[in-house]
C-alpha cells in the first residue's frame, strides 16, 4: 500500500523535477541530450547544460526545428529531450512531432513545462489546455503528467528508459509533494491512492492533490472513495478503469480542457464497458486569462469543493 506524505506538504514545481532528473540522466548516459528552444532557464535545463554541455543543444526560438533536429539526432542512437513550454511543445511543433518523431517511431521525448493553467499570470496565450489531447491522438505517442515532484522524477527516468516518443508535461508553479521519494511509478499503470466502493475519483497532474483532499473530506462524511492517479493518459490503464466501472460512478479531475484529456480518455473506456456515469471536472472548453492559478482553477470548478459536490451528486 502506498504511504503518502502528510500535510503540510513540501511545495515544489514539477519542472524542477525534470531539471533535477534530466541532469542525473545526462551524467549517467552520454546519449541523453536536451534540445532547448531558448527558454532553458525557465524549463530548468540549465543544470543539465552546465553538467554535460556537449549533450546540450539550443536552437533558439525555433521550436519546429528543435523537434526535427531531435528526430535526426535520435536516428543515431541519441535520446533527445526537447524542452519548451507545453503550448509550443504541443502545438507549434505538433506536425513536426507527428511527421518526424511519431510516424517513424523515433526515440524522442517532448518534455514541457508550463502545463495547464499553471502559467497563470502569463495569461491565456501561455496556458496549455489542449496539449495532452493533441498528443493523445497521435499514434506511437505516450502522454504523461506526474502529480508531484517525486512522481515526475520517476516518470522522467522511465521515459528515458523506454524506447519511443513520449510527451511529458510539468507544472510551472509549485504543487504539494504527496509521494515519498522512494515510491515507484510505471508508465501506463495508474497509481491507486485509496481503495473504496461508493465512488471513484480519477485525477492527474496538479489536480491529484485536490482530489486527495476531496477524498478525505468524502471519507469523513462516510463515503468510501477509490482514488486513482492516472499519470499516463496514453496508453491509458484500461484495467484500472474497468475496476472503477464496477462502482459505476466516476469523477475525473484534470488541469486540461475537458475535451480530449483525462476525462475523455476515461470516458472512451467506460463507454465500451457500459453502465457507469462519468462527470468530468477540468477546463470548461474556454481559454484562460491572467489571474492567480487558484482563481483560474476556481473559475473552471477545479476545486476540492466541486470535486466533493460532484461526487456526492453521483451517489
Amino acid at each position: 500500500m502506498i504511504v503518502l506524505n502528510k500535510a503540510p506538504y513540501e511545495q515544489k514545481a514539477t519542472r524542477e523535477a525534470f531539471g533535477d532528473e534530466i541532469e542525473e540522466l545526462g551524467k549517467e548516459n552520454k546519449d541523453i541530450m536536451v534540445v532547448d528552444a531558448d527558454i532553458g532557464g525557465s524549463c530548468k535545463t540549465t543544470k543539465f547544460m552546465n553538467a554535460v554541455p556537449k549533450q546540450h543543444v539550443n536552437v533558439g526560438i525555433a521550436e519546429q526545428n528543435a523537434a526535427g533536429m531531435a528526430a535526426g539526432l535520435s536516428t543515431t542512437g541519441k535520446i533527445p529531450f526537447v524542452s519548451t513550454y507545453a503550448v509550443f511543445g504541443s502545438l507549434r511543433m505538433a506536425e513536426q512531432v507527428r511527421q518526424e518523431v511519431c510516424y517513424p517511431n523515433l526515440n524522442v521525448k517532448i518534455a514541457c513545462s508550463h502545463g495547464g493553467l499553471t502559467p497563470a499570470n502569463d495569461g491565456g496565450s501561455h496556458q496549455a489546455i489542449e496539449d495532452m489531447g493533441v498528443y493523445r491522438t497521435i499514434p506511437n505517442m505516450r502522454v504523461i503528467m506526474g502529480a508531484d515532484y517525486n512522481a515526475t522524477r520517476k516518470l522522467v527516468r522511465q521515459a528515458a528508459e523506454i524506447y519511443g516518443p513520449v510527451y511529458l508535461r510539468f507544472t510551472r508553479d509549485k504543487v504539494p509533494v504527496i509521494y515519498d521519494e522512494n515510491e515507484e511509478f510505471e508508465i501506463g499503470k495508474a497509481k491507486q491512492l485509496k481503495e473504496g466502493n461508493d465512488v471513484a475519483i480519477i485525477a492527474n497532474g496538479d489536480t491529484v492533490c485536490l482530489a486527495l483532499e476531496a477524498a478525505e473530506i468524502l471519507e469523513s462524511k462516510g463515503v468510501s472513495v477509490k482514488l486513482l492517479d492516472m499519470h499516463t493518459i496514453k496508453p491509458i490503464d484500461h484495467e484500472a478503469i474497468i475496476e472503477c466501472t464496477k462502482i459505476g460512478k466516476i469523477v475525473t479531475v484534470e488541469d486540461h480542457n475537458i475535451l480530449n484529456g483525462l476525462g475523455s480518455a476515461v470516458s472512451d473506456v467506460v463507454a465500451e464497458e457500459g453502465n457507469t456515469r462519468v462527470r468530468r471536472i477540468g477546463v470548461q472548453d474556454r481559454f484562460g486569462e491572467s489571474a492567480p492559478y487558484e482563481k483560474l482553477l476556481e473559475i473552471n470548478g477545479i476545486t476540492v469543493e466541486n470535486i466533493v459536490n460532484t461526487a456526492e451528486e453521483l451517489l
Binding site: V57, Q64, N65, A67, G68, M69, A70, A71, G72, L73, S74, T75, T76, G77, K78, P80, E95, Q96, Q99, E100
Partner: peptide, 14 residues
C-alpha cells in the same frame, strides 16, 4: 520543410 532539420540533427550527431 521538415527534412532539413532532421539532416541537421544527424550531422550534429556525427
Amino acid at each position: 520543410g521538415q527534412g532539413l532539420s532532421c539532416a541537421v540533427g544527424m550531422a550534429l550527431a556525427g
